[in-house]
Design a binder for these strands. Structure first.
Lengths: 332, 332
DNA sequence: TCACTTATGCTCAAAATGAGCATTGTGCCG
DNA sequence: CGGCACAATGCTCATTTTGAGCATAAGTGA
């Protein structure tokens, strides 16, 4: 029964059950203080066009998953990728868009951070503010309106059970992910929130018809995406929000030189929260993340700001720090 | 050229290029203050037996990757899995043990944490101290001997290049991962260290003959494992070492009740470093991670310790904290 | 020059850390 | 039974690291 010999994943046994493997890329940029994801138009079977993430099958020519990804992305979007990391492998058989022909279809998702935003690239590829798809995640202007609309529906979902134990459990999850009871919002729990909304039937894709909503009328639960790409995006955002706290990855999104405030705006855009300005710059300074250039901004209103650049050397230094986010009580 | 329509990973295109997908599990337990991984005996093609991780192909019957994993593991090792999280998907074509027949073979690896260690389980499955495979990672008794032996070889590798720029880069990597120059050891960089050793040709598997060393004579670079399983293990350890700092996952490894010192020993076992006892308990206390029971230890020498249990409620509480590791200057 | 706006410097109290010293129970050994 | 050795616990203290703000500096536009 436990003949491990031919149960090894890479031996003949696995060849008997081939799977379809795809690659998906969540390509993130931040310009003008807005977080953006690169999207393409996807032609659904009978569902019309809808937004999706750049994706493609894994083909044997690619020696590496990551190489394959880069190839696909450059072909589809003409966007060069810089920083790339593996995000997650999605592979449930009941995944959306999966016809479950007895064949597993998995997608290996990658997260990429880029600087350049080529605005007039191809028509099929366009940068979209990621909060378009997850509007309840943006707390920069205070509690998002979308959240106010979603909240009663969530409470109704939690309450709409006969089983009191299940009800209790749902309420616990609500308070954990959305901080409904206690007012605690953890900006990293993006995926858990998405999945809760999905379970509660508040995500349009969940019903099976994805591209139903026209681009104009965003439902309160945001613009749908093709397949399970919204889930992938949620995963990416959660991961990125966590990562900026302990790794200097934001700089992958910044131009060669920038002001501390631009940097702050970028971090805020990603995390969806506001930070205390003075403390933010103190943190950046004492961590030695940047060095001054002799340039300053000009033209804009207010006192000109000094331009700084990322100190690449920190990547070779000790604990390689990021930002611990410190929310400000009041905006700015 | 950019007809995204049929370049979607999950459409017909991907069916044209099926891949062999396997599942691998890194199952971790900690007993008697030692970190252990569950291993099985693997029959290599011509390389004899060697240790490997429980693995199996992904078969269509499994609705979920995770379910498939659980099924395989329980079949192979009779070990029930509790906490499970996806670790990484390994898929480079030049992977070890991959015959590259033009077919991609990828392994989706999972990390599992378990409490029970069934000692006399099946003969094929056995718990092994993970430092058996990565002996340079254990700093609990001070700088590990293995590291002292490896160090000159690494320096030689770095120096053995004509290209001075490459040399410089290698030295930078050495100092970053092994902290050779400045004495900074970051216990999370397990994978980077493994990969560096691999590149430097110090990992036996790298040569192609895996099971060459008999279990008795561990090379300084540790006991080899089948396929790329040592890399998978390194990935798991690195991930776990990072995770315990911000998520209360250690408790998945603890029995229902335990002493604070046992808890500390477990954290130390995982991180491979020693902690300051008093500060450790202060941290645990103030984070509210545990609650006292009315039991105490007995029999052992020294003052009896109070038994505590994990407060499951913290999973529903605010930032869900873990341990920030604070290395002690002197042992204990 | 004034009004406004953003950049920067600095202060201060509170909380979190890092290192140790001191005390308290237990089992063991004359 | 008194004294030890050995852990478990309690507490102190000097630093750092946070969190919040106040105050000043340096441009732009009217």
């Amino acid at each position: 029964m436990t003949t491990v010999k031919d149960s090894q994943g890479r031996d003949n046994a696995s060849l008997v059950n081939p799977s379809a493997v795809g690659l998906v890329a969540v390509i993130i940029a931040a310009t003008d203080g807005e977080p953006r994801a690169l999207t393409v138009q996807v032609e659904g079977q009978a569902t019309g066009r809808s937004d999706g993430l750049p994706a493609g099958p894994l083909v044997p020519e690619h020696p590496t998953l990551e190489r394959g990804l880069r190839a696909w992305v450059e072909r589809q979007t003409h966007q060069r990728l810089g920083y790339v990391e593996q995000l997650y492998t999605f592979g449930d058989r009941d995944r959306q868009g999966d016809e479950s022909q007895g064949l597993h279809s998995l997608s290996v998702a990658y997260l990429a951070l880029v600087r350049e935003v080529r605005p007039g690239g191809l028509a099929e590829a366009s940068w979209r503010n990621w909060y378009r798809y997850l509007p309840w995640e943006d707390f920069r202007e205070g509690r998002p309106a979308a959240l106010a609309e979603i909240e009663p529906k969530l409470l109704a979902w939690a309450g709409g059970t006969g089983d009191p134990k299940l009800k209790r459990r749902r309420e616990d999850r609500l308070s954990l992910t959305f901080g409904l009871c206690d007012g605690t919002w953890n900006e990293e729990r993006v995926l858990e929130r998405y999945e809760l909304l999905f379970e509660a039937g508040l995500i349009p894709e969940a019903q099976g018809q994805s591209g139903a909503a026209s681009p104009a009328d965003l439902p309160v639960t945001g613009q749908p995406m093709a397949f399970d790409h919204r889930r992938v995006l949620a995963t990416a955002i959660g991961r990125l929000r966590g990562k900026i706290k302990y790794r200097p990855v934001v700089f992958e999104l910044m131009p060669p030189t920038f002001t501390l405030f631009q940097l702050q705006r970028t971090v805020e855009a990603l995390s969806g929260t506001n930070l205390h300005k003075q403390n933010f710059r103190r943190l950046v300074a004492q961590q030695g993340l940047v060095e001054e250039t002799d340039g300053v901004t000009s033209g804009a209103t207010g006192r000109p700001a000094r331009l700084v650049r990322f100190r690449r050397e920190v990547l070779l230094e000790r604990p390689a720090p990021g930002f611990r986010l410190r929310p400000a009580k009041r905006p700015t």
